[in-house]
Nucleic acid binder design. Structure first.
Lengths: 407, 407
DNA sequence: TAAACTTAATAAATTATTTTAATATCTTCC
DNA sequence: GGAAGATATTAAAATAATTTATTAAGTTTA
């Protein structure tokens, strides 16, 4: 791993971040990682221990000499509120610094589209959740929120949903809850999760496909989320892919989303069954969208031919889009993630088929397509990561005071 | 501009690079740029002056206090050999540290396709050019080469042309010339030129389209060329864009290159004229490809309807491809560069038309499409930049010795 | 099984960097 | 046009970081 240059004044918070991501590291390892001398690292670590952020966690195996003493974050030094939204529902969790929930993860219905009170509802949920679980707000480092739409993480504005009269959602929710808040596009948040704690762990260049009601793309470039100039990079759903394709909600024709998203698969399934196609999906045909989505993958796993046909068709089209992405970005790894990752195994073959057809062989040859193991938890974990990504020395100092007051 | 963290041991070479890119800077500016204290910067600058790399270049205008003393690279401290190749011909130049040629830029015919002796020819040209112009090899910092094909700049290998039995071209040419050599894909080299000395100067996120016999893409991300995992990123020519398009040399159908490259425009022009279309291009219809390419833009500038029709058609298709790029990368700036940049003005309208049709308005709204001013010189300048990008403390020390021996 | 070799942690000495203060030079505002 | 404020440079003092040496603790090999 490349050494990461940091300013001396940011060393301690950077070490804490690293320990959060890497679980446990020795001083020697940290020394190499940051390109700083051992005494400096030891001083920082000892201070972090004194301040209550870090603990010793025993010795690592020797690599031919004295065994190194490993350090890790103190899991309950701080908590993080992680929120994962989609168009239909919102999940809320509070996790510790090992990403373990310290209160039960809850899901609430929260329609984003044409819902003027969605933001107020969200804030209500947040405050109620904290209160109900009896968690001290002072212990919570911040709130990370992954949400669909055109989100500028830099400005804290979602241009599609949750309007706060043009104000920053980060500011608005901070004022309403007292907790530092960071919003970001759901796909970028999922990409964060996959790179820090998922199948793409520690990789510097990864493309993460968020298979959901739309089709999102979170990009990790040079080890960081790439957001583009306005923060809208990775708008994969609406690339013009098919000459005379289905009409998309965006008003255009031939968008990837309109041909291959989970929404389309569900709709095609309903329509097909109505027209007499046989499928075990028949029993849930009148269920709401969300349940139907879950059912698709259950039924696919049992080998239902109609559903597999639908998923294969979607997979092939996604594969064509991936071919374009590969030509432009030449990634090493592509991760299929999001709630649709469950169908990844079935889609793998048609995706590969499409790559064979649409990719220059040299580019497709070494590509590694992985299926997320975080699955549905990805967005929650990513939302927590989002808070830690914004952790800095200033917040370290604030929280040091808090811990010292408590003890 | 964001401060650039550098290791203390690399400060001097980084300062020199910065001065090369920015022409002239004061110590105070450098201090801010690198986040280092003034005494450190002054020490480094004074050493660089003593070593013969830097000179004082007078005072900058005051901004309300004592006028700062500006420093610049000593233009003839070192020379750089810059080589720009395309499939048909190769240009060679030697430039000083102000990118001014110190010997006449020469162009030689050098077919890359199916030419087993192309590499040997290239080396011959290099050595002959240096000899003919009587330039001391010890004065030349290195050779930068932009070339078409699948080029891995990291490995120094071009997988399409100029095979050195799988060896690194960097190594091979170094052995044959005694000069450190760096090869890279032509489009990435042009992107470097545009970002350092062109219309995209100092921008951190830029997409540079190389309009030539193919259609290349050089990406600047976080201020650096993005090359992807294998180094093949930006393979824009062969993205699958049209359902049943023309057959491409790559064997696939519907590639952008097969529909909109300069090669296609020239061929369509020839064919059209043969079939009776009226055009002032008629007089050069039997000229070789290269001349025909130049003629296209000359004729277009006079308002030739047929040629404008052809360029518009190509522009519209390029616009569709740009729409995809914009959806994925959300850049602030797109630069039309390469030898085809001459036609940029004519293509601008159809490109915008395509963006209106294929882009989500929010993404297309703020996009800035610029036409290169470096034009045909872009690849030469970029090749020189390529050498400076690889300049480090080690090379600084080597060249210090050289200068001291000479003086 | 002990000697030789590694690696880790700690302390002391050296080196490097930044901060502070002082001086020089220029602009702008009475 | 001179005084006050701003910026740049230089020198000295204070601070911080790294290097080197030392001790501790483990592995490998003869």
């Amino acid at each position: 791993m490349k050494i990461k240059l940091v300013k001396a004044s940011e060393l301690k918070s950077e070490i804490l971040k690293k320990l959060y991501y890497e679980n446990a590291l020795s001083c020697a390892e940290l020394s190499v990682l940051f390109g700083k001398s051992l005494p400096i690292i030891m001083k920082a670590i000892n201070e972090l221990i004194d301040e209550g952020f870090v603990v010793e966690v025993g010795y690592a195996p020797s690599s031919g000499g004295r065994r190194p003493l490993n350090y890790a974050v103190k899991a309950d030094a701080m908590y993080i509120m992680a929120i994962a939204m989609d168009q239909l529902s919102t999940r809320i969790a509070i996790v510790d610094l090992c990403n373990r929930p310290v209160a039960e993860v809850e899901m609430v219905e929260l329609l984003l589209n044409n819902n003027a009170v969605a933001l107020e509802k969200l804030i209500e949920y947040i405050n109620a959740y904290i209160l109900r679980n009896g968690i001290d707000k002072a212990r919570i480092l911040g709130i990370g929120i992954g949400m669909p739409g055109f989100v500028s993480a830099a400005d804290g504005i979602n241009y599609s949903y949750l309007d706060a009269n043009g104000q920053s959602l980060n500011e608005y929710i901070f004022k309403a809850t007292g907790l530092p808040t960071y919003v970001a596009n759901d796909s970028s948040v999922i990409a964060l999760a996959e790179q820090k704690f998922g199948v793409a762990k520690s990789q510097e260049e990864v493309m993460v496909i968020n298979l959901g009601w739309g089709i999102g793309l979170g990009m990790i470039i040079k080890g960081e989320v790439f957001r583009g100039y306005d923060g809208f990079a990775g708008e994969f759903s609406h690339i013009p892919l098919f000459e005379d394709g289905a009409l998309c909600i965006c008003g255009k024709q031939g968008c990837l989303e309109a041909e291959a998203s989970m929404l389309v698969v569900v709709e095609k399934a309903k329509e097909g069954i109505k027209q007499g196609r046989l499928s075990t999906l028949q029993s849930v045909i009148d269920d709401p969208l969300k349940l139907m989505g879950d059912a698709i993958f259950e039924v696919a796993a049992t080998g239902d031919p109609f559903v597999i046909e639908l998923l294969s068709d979607a997979g092939y089209k996604i594969g064509k889009a991936l071919a374009i992405l590969i030509h432009i970005m030449n990634p090493k790894t592509i991760v299929l993630s999001g709630r649709g990752a469950k169908g990844g195994k079935i889609m793998m073959a048609p995706i590969q088929l499409a790559l064979n057809k649409y990719c220059i062989p040299r580019l497709a040859a070494n590509i590694e397509i992985l299926i997320s193991e975080l699955g549905f938890d990805g967005e929650i974990i990513g939302a927590a990561v989002l808070v830690m990504e914004n952790f800095d020395q200033e917040k370290l100092i604030i929280n040091t005071k808090r811990i010292q007051m408590n003890i």
